[in-house]
Nucleic acid binder design. Structure first.
Lengths: 184, 184
DNA sequence: GTCTATAAGGCGATAGAC
DNA sequence: GTCTATCGCCTTATAGAC
């Protein structure tokens, strides 16, 4: 199922490093994330990280792939739901209503990570891919809903694009302001 | 006009520093923005910056105020437009269709700056205020449009909040992906 | 594969002269 | 108000032993 595209193998030591990166990110945030801190979460030396990865950027790009893979595997567990249920569940995955502490911290960290995409072309490429997949998935659900007569006959591409922009905005605002939002 | 709240005095040397910060931000992006680089855009020494500001954070918070003030003065030049014209112009201000190079770079830099709000409470407070003002302005336009019978009778708060989320999302996506968006 | 030790450099910030 | 010089810290990354 879902052998969509970039699913890749994660060796045991890679996973350990990715999880250490995850913990360090939650603990210190992106701006304070350093190789030293990742290494100390891993209980190993900095040098050993450079055995596995060429550079910090390299490690972080891997981490981005890792998180993307986890998102994908959370998303594509199709049951036999109706399109509107599927849509609702998908949005709930992206924007959990109840903010489990670690989960909301991870979303926040992803917003920080995303800001790297402004100046770093490799990051931007990765985020472009992530976003494309999300929009495509939205569009698929909407088209299905239209086909089954559950949704009005709208331009599914435009609606998916619009929904995604709104979702991104809420994610960003949750992470960077003290304001509160409703959904729908 | 618009003596709304935080408009404050900007001395000549403050303005010079803010403009140097602006240039440094466009040139290097937030992650690579340092006191040294701002100083060299200013053609002065680092130490002189510390005469004017206590710390880097202090300087950047001032810069954020500076940019906010500029946004406000761009926004509140009311003509006698209809609400829908006003709305359109306001959105065009936030999300210029044609991406003047420096302008779009500044938007991008603001996205980077915003990501600081994830971990820094002072930044978050500042962005919360900015966003509140934008939403309030949107709401005012919508309410006026409803009063004049130009818009449908909707919940102006909710609609303003929704529109703002969408706008934020587009800003963020423009800055961090290579994807393209339409508007409406 | 992991370690210790260290190189090389940028950073924020300060001291003290002018 | 601006300068030069410098402190102390932390960073990414590497060398070389085990």
């Amino acid at each position: 199922m879902t052998a969509d595209s970039s699913e890749r193998e994660w060796s045991k030591s890679e996973v350990r490093i990715m999880e250490a990166t995850h913990r360090a990110l939650l603990r210190y945030g992106y701006a304070q994330l350093s190789i030293s801190r990742i290494a100390s979460e891993l209980d190993q030396s900095k040098a050993s990280l450079y055995y596995h990865y060429d550079s910090k950027e390299d490690l972080l790009l891997s981490f981005l792939e890792y998180v993307t893979d986890q998102l994908e595997s959370n998303i594509y567990t199709d049951n036999n739901e109706s399109p509107s249920q599927e849509l609702e569940r998908f949005i709930e995955t992206l924007l959990p209503l109840q903010l489990d502490d670690d989960e909301s911290q991870l979303r926040a960290a992803m917003v920080e990570l995303r800001s790297q995409a402004v100046m770093d072309e490799k990051f931007r490429k990765q985020f472009t891919e992530i976003d494309d997949r999300i929009v495509n998935h939205l569009e698929r659900i909407i088209s299905k809903g239209i086909g089954e007569g559950e949704f009005r006959n709208v331009d599914s591409t435009r609606v998916a694009e619009h929904m995604f922009a709104t979702i991104s905005g809420v994610m960003c605002n949750r992470a960077t302001t003290n304001r509160e939002n409703a959904l729908a």
